[in-house]
């Protein structure tokens, strides 16, 4: 992980304006696919599984989204901003101390009603949130349709539907991240 940083510093010093690497944090309930998205964004591998709570440690990687290089941070799952377990505390402390430039809240489409309260909490905390509604394919199988545009309008934040395990929606997610960051820097 050290190498990309030094490489980035080199290019940064060459560039006319010195750009700091932007921080992108993935948060969400256990077992919603944060680690899959992390792998897709960074190209590095962290262990992914169908068992809640397998990400024990914070994983950090770098990934290029649009023209920008990001530090991507994968966090242990959390249910709410009120931590129950040690791992959840880790995630909240990270959010409290790291000043992320963008927070992607990954939720399970099948259980949107249960997970959206965390989105609302993140917004209340004043964090820059994008909502990634993951596992759209499984929700479809269950007979659920979600009007993502209406949801984006209601929450007034970017919302994207993904099926990360099938690599669906990831390009759109990346585009949204770029747009979001551009808007907020300007």
């Amino acid at each position: 992980m050290d190498k990309p940083v030094t490489e980035l510093n080199k290019t940064a010093s060459k560039a006319p304006s010195i750009r700091k690497k932007k921080k992108l944090v993935l948060v969400g309930t256990p077992n919603v696919g944060k680690s899959v998205i992390f792998n897709l964004l960074t190209g590095t591998y962290v262990v992914v599984s169908n068992y809640p709570g397998t990400t024990v440690e914070v994983a950090r990687g770098t990934g290029k989204i649009g023209q920008e290089v990001y530090e991507v941070i994968d966090t242990p799952g959390m249910y709410s901003l009120f931590p129950i377990t040690e791992e959840e505390r880790v995630t909240r402390t990270l959010l409290l101390t790291e000043k992320p430039d963008i927070v992607i809240h990954v939720v399970d489409a099948k259980n949107l009603e249960r997970m959206l309260p965390l989105t609302l909490q993140l917004l209340e905390a004043g964090l820059p949130v994008i909502l990634a509604v993951n596992m759209m394919d499984e929700a479809e199988v269950l007979g659920r349709t979600i009007d993502l545009d209406a949801l984006a309008k209601a929450l007034n934040i970017p919302v994207v539907g993904t099926a990360a395990a099938q690599n669906r929606g990831i390009d759109q997610l990346k585009r949204m991240v770029s747009d979001f960051v551009r808007k907020h820097v300007a």
């Binding site: 249910y79 709410s80 009120f82 129950i84 259980n111 009603e113 249960r114």
Partner: peptide
């Protein structure tokens, strides 16, 4: 408290 938190976390 912790029991309450767990139950609520599960929706």
């Amino acid at each position: 408290k912790s029991t309450l938190n767990k139950i609520m976390a599960l929706g």
